[in-house]
Simulated assay, not measured.
Amino acid sequence: MTGAGGGDGGATAIWGRSEQQDFRSRVRGCLLGGALGDALGAGVEFDSLAAIREKCGEEGVTDYVPAYGRRGAVTDDTQMTLFTVDGLIRAHVRRDTGAWHPPTDVHAAYRRWAATQRDWGPDERRADDGWLAREEWLYARRAPGNACLSGLADARMGTLEQPKNPDSKGCGTVMRSAPFGLLVGWEPGLVFQLAVECAAQTHGHPTGCLAAGAFAAIVHTLARGEDLDTAVQRALVQLAARPGHQETTDALKRALGAVRQGMPSPERVAALGEGWTAEEALSIGVYCALVAEDVRHGLLLAVNHSGDSDSTGSVCGNLLGAMHGETSLPPGWVAEIEGRATILELADDFAMEMTQGPALHEPGSASPGWLARYPRA
Rank of each mutant, 00 (worst) to 15 (best):
S283R: 03
G325T: 02
H245F: 02
A335E: 15
A335T: 10
L228G: 02
A212I: 01
H220A: 07
T312H: 04
P266D: 03
A231M: 10
L301K: 00
A271C: 01
A270S: 14
T221P: 00
A217I: 02
G213T: 11
G298W: 03
A241L: 09
V259N: 06
C288P: 08
H297M: 04
V269Y: 10
A302C: 06
A322G: 07
S314K: 03
V237T: 14
L222F: 08
L344W: 04
M323W: 15
S283E: 04
G213E: 08
A302I: 09
A302T: 09
D229E: 14
T249K: 03
T230R: 15
Q246K: 05
V232D: 12
V269K: 07
L236R: 12
A281T: 12
Y287I: 09
M323L: 15
G225D: 05
A240N: 09
L282Q: 03
G317V: 10
G332T: 08
G285P: 13
L252K: 06
D310H: 03
L282R: 05
G313R: 09
C316N: 11
M323R: 15
A335K: 12
D294M: 00
S309M: 12
A302P: 15
E338K: 08
H220P: 00
Q246R: 12
R260F: 13
L301M: 02
L329G: 04
A223E: 06
I343W: 08
I337R: 10
E338A: 13
L329P: 03
E247H: 02
Q233S: 12
R340H: 10
E336P: 06
S309K: 13
P331M: 08
A302V: 10
T221Y: 01
S306G: 15
P243V: 01
V291W: 12
Q233G: 08
G325P: 01
L329M: 04
S283G: 04
T221D: 11
R260S: 15
S309F: 05
T230K: 14
L319R: 01
I337W: 08
A214W: 11
A211P: 06
A302M: 06
K253F: 03
R268N: 05
T312E: 09
S309N: 11
G257K: 14
S265L: 04
